[in-house]
């Protein structure tokens, strides 16, 4: 046992040949023992469902009468691509992701982080407190608050009325814009925190040197700040996108995907197909596609972090 738990055995390279192959295998096994509970849980409850997902996606499984499940090949996928509701869901998911995550949270987060550097201290703490509270509130509560805000009788129209701007029933006329703005309200804090940390790491001398050389505000932003935080931009975009792809509760509470299907993104479409219409097989095929898009982004994210692992 003392050989197994030798002091710092992992960090100090051992001269080759001190342990026989079997002893080394046994050492690896004993050391790896504490990982086992996690691995078992993740295999059963994460890898299992993903494997199931791949299997169900090629069947016609329904909630009613599970005994009649057949293998149907790529039928679910051909059906999906031929279905205008599915194409609608894909388009809405794209719009939702681009509007709320890539443009909204990302740009607003960077803007806030940059401005906060030259703001006075009380303003700075006011901004970060309010924005962060919007972020930490539970998803359903955030959804109700923004539902109240965007309703016809809600506060947004009241403000527009005071400003003499046209009002409308936001959740009815522009539902996807309303839920996207809601997601911006809820998610900007994360980008703001990531960018605040990144901007703090830029050495002051570099910015000052550029200022002395006569570089204007925009030039400094474009040629110095952005290139220096490009890794954080990449990481942040990736995490925001992954998070936004799986947003369900926010839209479900605010619009239920409606009116009609005009805010029905892929997660809501999947839910409707699988549970309302009890087409588990078809819903799972949609889930699998969503999972694959997520996996693609996840791999891109890993490549960005490559050097850090």
């Amino acid at each position: 046992m003392t050989a197994t738990y030798g002091p710092g055995a992992g960090t100090v390279p051992r001269p080759p040949g001190t342990l026989s192959t079997t002893a080394r295998t046994r050492r690896t096994l004993v050391r790896g023992l504490p990982v086992v509970p996690s691995v078992v849980l993740m295999l059963l409850f994460l890898a299992g469902p993903i494997a199931y997902c791949v299997y169900y996606a090629f069947t016609d499984m329904r909630l009613t009468g599970a005994s009649t499940t057949h293998f149907v090949g790529f039928d679910n996928f051909t059906k999906a691509f031929g279905d205008s509701n599915f194409r609608n869901a894909v388009m809405l998911t794209l719009m939702f992701t681009v509007l709320s995550s890539i443009i909204g949270q990302n740009v607003l987060g960077l803007f806030l982080a940059a401005l906060m550097r030259s703001a006075s201290r009380p303003v700075r703490s006011a901004v970060s407190t309010v924005v962060v509270i919007s972020w930490v509130l539970p998803e359903v509560v955030a959804a109700y608050l923004l539902y109240a805000f965007f309703r016809r009788e809600g506060e947004l129209n009241a403000i527009l009325h005071v400003l003499h701007l046209p009002q409308q029933n936001w959740l009815f006329t522009l539902p996807i814009v309303a839920v996207s703005l809601a997601n911006v309200w809820r998610g900007t804090a994360f980008s703001m925190l990531v960018y605040s940390a990144a901007l703090q790491e830029i050495p002051a001398e570099i910015t000052e040197a550029a200022e002395v050389d006569g570089a204007g505000r925009w030039k400094r932003l474009w040629h110095i700040t952005l290139p220096m935080i490009r890794r954080s931009i990449g990481t942040n975009l990736m995490l925001n996108t992954l998070q936004t792809l799986s947003v369900f509760g926010l839209i479900f509470v605010m619009t239920r995907g409606g009116p009609g299907n005009r805010s029905e993104t892929l997660p809501l479409y999947m839910y409707e197909q699988a549970f309302q219409d009890s087409l588990i097989g078809y819903g799972t095929a949609v889930a699998l596609m969503l999972l694959m898009v997520g996996a693609l982004f996840s791999v891109l994210y890993l490549r960005l972090l490559r050097t850090e692992v």
Binding site: M42, P49, L242
Partner: peptide, 19 residues
């Protein structure tokens, strides 16, 4: 592990339900 943190858990819910 890191790859899994990125997967949209929402997507797994239908098979988890069936399972």
């Amino acid at each position: 592990i890191l790859f899994t943190t990125g997967l949209p858990i929402t997507a797994v819910m239908v098979p988890v339900y069936a399972m």
